[in-house]
Amino acid sequence: MGCRAAGPGSTVLGMGTFEGWPAWVEARPIEKPDAEAWAGLLADVQKVDQDGENFSVEDLLEELDDPLVNAASDTIGLWTDGVMVGYGLVRWRTHVIDVHRLNTDAAVRPAWRRRGLGSALISWMTGRAGELHLEHHPDVDAELNAGTISTNEGARTLLTSLGFEECRYFFEMKRPFDSPIPAVEASAGLRVVTFDPSYDEALRLTHNDVFLDHWGSTPKDEDTWKVWFTGSRAFRGDLTFLVLDGERIVAYAIGYEYEADTAATGIREVYIGQVGTVRSHRGRGLAAVAISAQMREAERTGYKRASLGVDAENPTGALGLYERLGFEQDKTSITYRRPLT
């Protein structure tokens, strides 16, 4: 299924056509040569929205390699006078547990806001999401998800005005290494090891099982795992710790370093992307064991702080765990939903 720009004001998209772009906009799919312009757009967005996410050209090229994104049909870039002024992107899910939640990314360059581009992007993403849903999971309910930092009143107002409702809150938490990191030891019979590629598939399967009871999570296939988890350019195996019972992974904390964030802030930070404990071993403090080992190694190797994101309604009580380890809330992001009909 391909997509080709049909000139300013319209874009041909697979099974349908969206013609809601302003006449002064050229709308076409994002291609790899556009990554530098895309990064410039996001840098301008970050200066105003301050959500703490920075992207390099290399990061965006990785986005285009996502196996669940066909750039030719699932992305759109908006251009005027050779400047990228907005973009949209839709991702579908290979597996569905309850509802097919299609995720979106989108932004409009601040100087071009309040000209109808945000509404047009959401209309395009809604249409494309509907196509993807019918193609992949037509027999289940579906919804479009969009997220924004809680302080972005413009985005919140836009989403609400277009029929989206708040459905989930996530806290970004940070833990500077300016106070001692507690050493949390594993109980007798368990071992703590750093990641080795020989554990990769076992870690994927363990993660899929652990997160079955987490909102919005679905099992990760091998291709997605390799692009966004242990195959990501941000992944740090030396900062990923596993708790083993025999040879079985029973808890883990996966570490990442986003170099664009370091360049923007001047602070080297380990991002704890995924933390989990298998059901049979919950309640024994094993996630704290993995995170403690991770932070101590990060501090030893020159990192200045750790950060992570947590669902405010996490069913395993993760928020309390992170607070006990010294993490404090820094920002709040909100996920919005709108059913696809």
Rank of each mutant, 00 (worst) to 15 (best):
Trp38Asn: 02
Pro29Gly: 04
Val45Ala: 08
Ala35Gln: 04
Asp49Val: 15
Thr17Gly: 06
Gly40Asn: 15
Trp21Phe: 14
Ile30Asn: 00
Glu36Leu: 11
Pro22Ser: 03
Gly14Ala: 13
Ala23Ser: 14
Pro29Phe: 01
Gln50Lys: 15
Ala35Asp: 05
Leu13Ile: 15
Leu41Cys: 11
Trp21Leu: 05
Gly9Ala: 09
Val25Trp: 00
Val12Pro: 00
Val45Gly: 01
Ala43His: 14
Val48Ala: 11
Glu36Tyr: 06
Val25Thr: 02
Gly14Leu: 08
Gly9Ser: 10
Glu19Arg: 13
Thr11Ile: 15
Gly16Asp: 14
Lys47Leu: 15
Glu19Tyr: 03
Arg28Asp: 03
Pro33Met: 12
Gly20Thr: 08
Gln46Glu: 15
Ala35Arg: 02
Ala23Glu: 14
Gly40Ala: 12
Ile30Tyr: 01
Ala27Cys: 06
Ser10Val: 15
Gly16Ser: 14
Val25Pro: 01
Pro29Lys: 02
Ala35Glu: 03
Val12Gln: 11
Gly14Arg: 14
Gln46Asp: 12
Val48Leu: 10
Lys32Gly: 00
Phe18Asp: 01
Glu36Ser: 13
Gln50Thr: 06
Gln50Arg: 15
Ser10Gln: 15
Ala23Arg: 11
Trp21Tyr: 09
Gly40Met: 11
Trp24Ser: 09
Gln46Tyr: 08
Thr17Ile: 14
Asp44Asn: 12
Gly20Lys: 03
Thr11Ala: 07
Glu19Trp: 05
Thr17Pro: 03
Asp34Phe: 03
Trp24Pro: 02
